[in-house]
Design a protein around this nucleic acid. Structure first.
Length: 543
RNA sequence: GCGGGUGUAGCUCAAUGGUAGAGCGUCGGCUUCCCAAGCCGAAUACGAGGGUUCGAUUCCCUUCACCCGCUCCA
């Protein structure tokens, strides 16, 4: 193995290749680009399509509902869905995204930290005529001690002088404080460093209809999952599926990320590949384990087999309150510091939180068992649809609200991981047998943009005509590339750099015995096959 | 959002207060060759806006984008 380049260098090389070869471009680049948005070029779109198609094929179309796959508790059904990007605003209120993605934040000019407006708490204190609101982010049990400590420090007093401080009133949250100029920020030394609260809306807002007003505000979906939940009953009523079954969806989602970063890793517009798998509460834990392992295996089989891929089970503290299990499939992207991993996919046991929230109204995820979230007047914070989203088992007569296992993958992150994993610089001999550096994308043949390239060895003796005929035949079955320009070695290298797994070359012997060579990208091995067998051979190799 | 860095051809880089060079790549031609670098030729660039100046790619300001460190991360 050649020594790996430094992470940032390696990532820069990958970004450069993506640009050079047409995998990825900055969005609207001629106008200077747009932060958090990326376009897929001619090769990138093929790669991403192949990823999505592999996922859809493996999860949906080739799934046999008559047989329990290895590791699955039972056989199950899978169907697809394609919901809209803009949905009824109430969807996001009941899903929790509206509250969660709709924060007011204050910034501290001194500490450069940012806080959620409603999470900053503190209390008024007075000392020798100066009245200051000591703010803190400390935990509930520690806030008393913390504010005392910081008040003493602010007034330059010793602990034994604590009695001279006059505390005024109970703990308040920042929204209850009128004048931010007298607030000592949670990490500040001087007062009045907090900015006025500013709205941070992580959902993209738009308006339905020609008139814009608060009446017809809508949001671009921040996840595809909700389209599945709100169609749960439609799917049940129209397809005869029975639990356990899954609904799969691929589609764009939008999040107004505060800090888009790391190439396409954290983009504001991105594509998700999600399954909501509905099952009986009693078997949900088994299904969770099945999906977790199944999804991990999917990445492995498509080439993320090394130790850069890992499965990380969330610790109990990390879990949503209603979830009994969540695992992330993570990849050690080269742009991350050594030892750090970035999420490719999350597999979450979501219980009945989503269906019940859309049924009864938004549930409070902090309650257990889950209860309706109430507003200050004791009324439901967000009303549900009121529709019955429970399921009746026709055989047993049992009626229940299914539990949900959610494998949620990022298509762009997968594309990026496959690119990073595939990118290698190795040595290949030149025409004099001298090793030369070679850039090669060792993409899995299923994912490679071009499955093969077809070359005439030289541009004479009828070789181009034969090669073009082969190209025409292959083109009917797969994406292939034709090239007759320049030295043969150079043509091989060009294909190596874009991950084409096989090259078919028409040479002198072809004219004699109607065979061509097939050259393997990774081993550089060549063998001969009959022209007529070319296509079958390739399809066998690609699998 | 804060701090630091960067921005010149498709890519990687260079030079310069008097409008820019190279390597690779690309295209055309020669070569007809099984793993890029043999020959000839060609095209293509100062992120955007403003200011200073006789003149700005160069200096200043603003802005945008990318990278690094914070912050955020459902």
């Amino acid at each position: 193995m050649p020594a790996e380049a430094a992470p940032s260098k390696r990532m820069a090389d990958i970004v450069s290749l993506c640009k050079r070869r047409g995998f990825l471009f900055p969005s609207s680049e001629i106008y200077g680009g747009l932060n958090g948005f990326w376009d897929y070029g001619p090769l990138g779109v093929e790669l991403k399509r192949n990823i999505k198609e592999a996922w859809w094929r493996d999860m949906v179309t080739t799934h046999n509902e008559l047989i329990a796959p290895a590791g699955a508790p039972s056989a199950y059904e899978m169907v697809g869905l394609d919901a809209t990007i803009i949905m009824h605003p109430q969807v996001w209120k009941c899903s929790g995204h509206y509250d969660l993605f709709h924060d007011y934040m204050v910034d501290c000019r001194e500490s450069k930290k940012r806080y959620r407006y409603d999470q900053v708490r503190g209390r008024w204190v007075e000392y020798r005529g100066e009245r200051v609101f000591i703010a803190t982010m400390a935990e509930a049990g520690e806030e008393e001690e913390e504010t005392l400590r910081r008040a003493l420090k602010y007034f330059k007093l010793r602990p034994r002088d604590a009695g001279e401080l006059h505390w005024d009133g109970p703990f308040l949250t920042l929204p209850q404080v009128q004048d931010l100029s007298r607030v000592l920020g949670p990490d500040a030394q001087t007062v009045g460093t907090l900015t006025e609260p500013r709205e941070f809306n992580l959902m993209f807002k738009t308006y339905v209809g020609a008139l814009s007003g608060e009446e017809n505000v809508a949001f671009l979906r921040p996840e595809t999952a909700q389209g599945i939940f709100v169609n749960f009953k439609n799917v049940l009523d129209s397809t005869r599926v029975r639990i356990p079954f899954g609904i799969a969806q691929i589609g764009k989602s939008f999040r107004n990320e505060i800090t888009p970063r790391y190439f396409t890793f954290r983009s504001r517009e991105f594509e998700q590949m999600e399954i909501e798998f509905f099952c009986h509460p009693q078997s949900s834990a088994d299904w969770y384990r099945y999906w977790r392992d199944r999804r991990m295996e999917w990445y492995r089989q498509l080439g993320l087999s090394g130790e850069r891929l890992r499965l990380r089970e969330h610790s109990p503290e990390e879990l949503s309150h209603y979830s009994t299990g969540t695992a992330d499939i993570e990849y050690a992207f080269p742009f991350l510091p050594a030892g750090e991993f970035g999420e490719l996919e999350g597999i979450a046991h979501r219980g009945d939180f989503d269906l019940r929230s859309h049924m009864e109204g938004k549930l409070d995820p902090k309650t257990r068992p889950l209860q309706l979230e109430l507003d200050a007047e004791g009324k439901p914070r967000w009303r549900g649809s009121g529709k019955d989203l429970s399921y009746r088992d026709e055989l047993t007569g049992e009626r229940y609200i299914p539990h949900v296992i959610e494998p949620s993958a990022g298509a762009d992150r997968a594309a990026l991981a496959f690119l990073c994993e595939a990118y290698q610089e190795d040595q290949a001999p030149d025409e004099h047998g001298v090793p030369q550096q070679r850039i090669v994308l060792r993409l899995h043949p299923r994912l490679a943009p071009f499955k093969a390239a077809v070359f005439p060895l030289v541009k004479k003796d009828g070789m181009p005509e034969i090669a073009q005929r082969i190209y025409g035949e292959l083109k009917k079955r797969m994406l292939v590339f034709y090239d007759e320009k320049g030295a043969i070695g150079r043509r091989y290298r060009r294909q190596d750099e874009i991950g084409t797994p096989y090259c078919i070359t028409v040479d002198g012997q072809t004219l004699v015995d109607q065979t061509v060579t097939i050259r393997d990208r990774d081993s550089l091995r060549q063998w001969r096959v009959k022209i007529d067998d070319c296509c079958d051979e390739l399809e066998r190799l690609i699998g």
